[in-house]
Design a protein around this nucleic acid. Structure first.
Length: 327
DNA sequence: AAGGAGCTCAACCGCACCGTA
DNA sequence: GTACGGTGCGGTTGAGCTCCT
């Protein structure tokens, strides 16, 4: 279905809001609320589209917005939440009272991302682009989840912790997304990681048929964001032995090959259930609760065995060696 | 002091989802 | 079942600001 754009009227004003417009909008909403943004715009006497009014209110005029720089505690919370939720800014914002999704997104892109890259560069001397999980491994996960900027010299100390979080995040992302990556995208990406001969066949015959059953029934695309180009790792637990062997035999990726769990197995169901639990926590709880639940999941007897199977290879591959084989 | 480069962040765009007629 | 409007969300843009040479 093709949707018409919401604001087609060329006469509607765009661009920065004036103090007078702010006052009109604030007054109207304080008196009447905002059930219908189109009506708000009209009845408040604003020559703006409803969408613009909603954005101005939620990101700027709302009385409970906390302005000013982010505290160190907020920064740590954002980093931790981003590891679990990915670029789900509105859900991250739900854990930070007074902060908007837009504000957090900007803060991440301007401050945190650059800080991570700078730290990585200082440690490794490398200056080329790197994907985020590797960046985190090289900068703060080698240390302590709750002190990201301290003691960065202990680089390899907690790689398994990173791997756990990364894998969990991939599962969550798969379950949250509904857009299937294009075949071309998939093939190119696999090719870039060493899958040259037979990459297309592998994708069409093995991966696509596996999307749509078991854990991946929502369709999977954790890979649109270039930060998360770890396809084999993300899928290995979801593939049967035959598919996994096919991937292993065609790939130079060192982390592929030791773990194999059928998508319909009880272990995968357990992981699915655990991930749903985490999602539920994520939508309504403070950051501390989210991370407490994450710890519980990773320590869980049943789900834990799944992670242990898959984590074995992470724990035996130093992050920088892994990095150099992909980039 | 000037001006170019880099950075910030408010605002926009386009897509997806959901409820309703 | 389908079309459509409203809303929410993530990604992107660009004006204005700051810093650097």
């Amino acid at each position: 279905m093709v949707r018409s754009p919401c604001c087609t009227d060329a006469n509607l004003k765009k661009g920065p809001w004036t103090p007078e417009e702010d006052e009109k909008l604030r007054d109207y909403i304080n008196r009447n609320g905002h059930e219908n943004w189109k009506q708000v715009s009209k009845l408040a006497g604003l020559n703006r589209c409803g969408k613009s009014c909603r954005l101005r209110w939620t990101n700027y005029l709302r009385p409970d917005i906390k302005r000013g720089p982010f505290s160190e505690e907020e920064e740590r919370d954002i980093i931790k939440l981003h590891l679990v939720l990915g670029n789900k800014w509105s859900r991250i914002a739900a854990h930070l009272p007074g902060r908007t999704d837009n504000e957090i997104k900007n803060f991440w892109n301007t401050h945190i991302r650059r800080k991570l890259h700078q730290t990585y560069k200082t440690r490794t001397g490398l200056n080329h682009p790197i994907n985020l999980p590797q960046l985190l491994a090289a900068t703060h996960f080698g240390v302590n989840l709750f002190s990201p900027w301290n003691n960065i010299l202990t680089l390899h100390a907690d790689v398994s912790q990173l791997a756990k979080l990364q894998l969990l995040q991939n599962v969550i992302q798969m379950m949250n997304t509904t857009t299937l990556p294009s075949l071309e995208y998939f093939t190119t990406l696999l090719g870039s990681q060493g899958l040259t001969n037979g990459a297309t066949n592998f994708v069409t015959e093995k991966i696509y048929p596996n999307i749509g059953i078991g854990t991946l029934n929502a369709s999977a695309n954790p890979f649109q964001n270039n930060d998360f180009q770890v396809i084999p790792d993300s899928f290995q637990g979801m593939l049967d032995h035959e598919s996994l062997n096919s991937l292993t035999s065609n790939s130079c990726h060192p982390n592929v090959g030791s773990a194999s769990v059928h998508p319909e197995s009880s272990v995968v169901k357990q992981v699915e259930s655990n991930s749903n639990d985490l999602l539920n926590y994520s939508t309504s709880s403070p950051a501390s609760t989210v991370f407490e639940s994450l710890d519980n999941i990773l320590d869980d007897e049943n789900g834990g065995s799944y992670w242990k199977d898959i984590l074995y290879q992470y724990e035996h591959v130093p992050p920088l060696a892994w990095h150099s084989s992909i980039v």
